[in-house]
Simulated scan of single mutants.
Amino acid sequence: MSEPETMSLRFPDPEQRRAIEAAATEAGVSMQEYILSAAYERATAVEMKFLEAFKDSMARSGDAFEAEPSASDPSPEQRAAEQQARVALGQQGQGRAA
């Protein structure tokens, strides 16, 4: 098994490299580890922002469905008819099983 290759750390801006190098040194980690940790933190922050927006969207959708009855929310009459149909089907099934 071979050793993993190191990440290429080329920076077109020497000041940017020095700033990252100094931050990594201050944190007590390699530049590679510092950069990967920063990328992970950024990705996690984006994910959390997305999930918060998704939860807000779900709440708004739920509020909209509660505010306006639709075809997915049957009327009391329709519920009673469905209940009667279930009872009738249950009685028919009992008759055949006997």
Rank of each mutant, 00 (worst) to 15 (best):
I20G: 00
M58Y: 12
E26R: 02
L36M: 11
A45G: 15
A80Y: 10
L36R: 12
A24W: 01
L9Q: 09
Y40R: 14
F50G: 06
Q32H: 02
A97V: 09
L9N: 04
A38V: 08
E5P: 01
M58Q: 15
D56E: 15
S70W: 07
P76W: 05
E52S: 13
A67G: 12
S72Q: 06
E66A: 14
P4F: 05
A45F: 06
A98Y: 08
V29W: 04
A64Q: 08
A45S: 15
M1S: 14
F54P: 00
Y34E: 01
D63W: 05
A39D: 08
R18C: 00
Q92E: 15
R79P: 00
Y40C: 03
E3C: 03
M31R: 10
A64E: 11
E77I: 02
V46R: 12
P4M: 07
G90T: 08
K49N: 12
A22S: 06
R18D: 12
S8F: 02
Y34K: 01
I20M: 03
R42A: 15
S8M: 04
S61R: 08
A23S: 11
P76M: 05
A53W: 04
F54A: 15
S37F: 07
F65V: 12
A80Q: 03
F65G: 00
A80H: 03
E21F: 03
Q83M: 11
E5K: 10
A45W: 04
Q84N: 06
L89I: 02
S8D: 10
P74F: 04
R60G: 02
P69K: 02
A85G: 02
Q16V: 09
R10V: 07
P4C: 06
E21L: 04
E5R: 12
P14R: 03
S70A: 10
R18F: 04
V29L: 03
K55F: 13
A64K: 05
S72I: 06
L89W: 09
L36G: 00
R10P: 00
T44G: 02
Q83E: 12
F65M: 13
